[in-house]
Simulated scan of single mutants.
Amino acid sequence: MNALLTAVSAAGPMACGWGVHGLLLGRRLTAARRDPLSGLWTRAAFERQALRILGRQMHTALVLVDLDGFKALNDRYGHAAGDAAIRHTAASLTDALSSYPGAVVGRLGGDEFAVVVPLPGTHTLPWLLDALHDAITAPFRHEDTDLTVGVSLGASLSSDLLPAAPQGGPEALSLLMRLADEAMYTAKRAGGGWCDPAASTPGCTTTAGRRTGRPGTTAKEVAA
Rank of each mutant, 00 (worst) to 15 (best):
L157K: 05
S99A: 15
G192L: 06
L5M: 08
G154M: 01
T30R: 15
P36C: 08
T218S: 12
I53E: 06
G102C: 11
W194N: 01
P13F: 04
H59Y: 00
R210W: 03
R43A: 14
M58N: 02
A164K: 12
S92N: 08
P126F: 09
R43P: 03
F46K: 12
A45R: 07
G26M: 05
V8L: 15
T124D: 09
R76L: 01
V105S: 15
R33A: 14
V115S: 04
T218R: 15
P120H: 12
L40P: 07
G209T: 02
T207L: 04
V116D: 02
Y77C: 12
A114C: 08
A165D: 01
A172L: 04
H79E: 14
C195W: 10
G55R: 11
S38Y: 04
H88E: 04
A155N: 07
A31R: 14
H88D: 01
H142S: 09
R27E: 13
D196R: 07
D196P: 03
M14G: 05
S92D: 12
G69Y: 08
Q57N: 12
R178Q: 15
L108F: 00
F113P: 05
G102L: 09
V222D: 03
S158V: 06
M58C: 08
A50L: 10
F46P: 03
A84I: 06
V222Y: 08
R34H: 11
T205C: 02
Q57F: 11
L73F: 01
R43L: 07
A96D: 02
L125Q: 13
G17L: 12
R33G: 15
A155C: 10
A84N: 06
R211M: 08
H88W: 09
A3M: 07
F70H: 10
A164L: 14
V104G: 05
S200Q: 11
V151R: 00
P120I: 08
A223I: 04
V222P: 00
L129K: 01
A44Q: 10
M184A: 13
G102M: 13
L132K: 04
A15K: 09
G78R: 00
H21G: 01
D130R: 15
E221D: 11
G216N: 06
S9F: 14
A61E: 07
R210Q: 09
G55Y: 07
L5R: 13
Q49S: 12
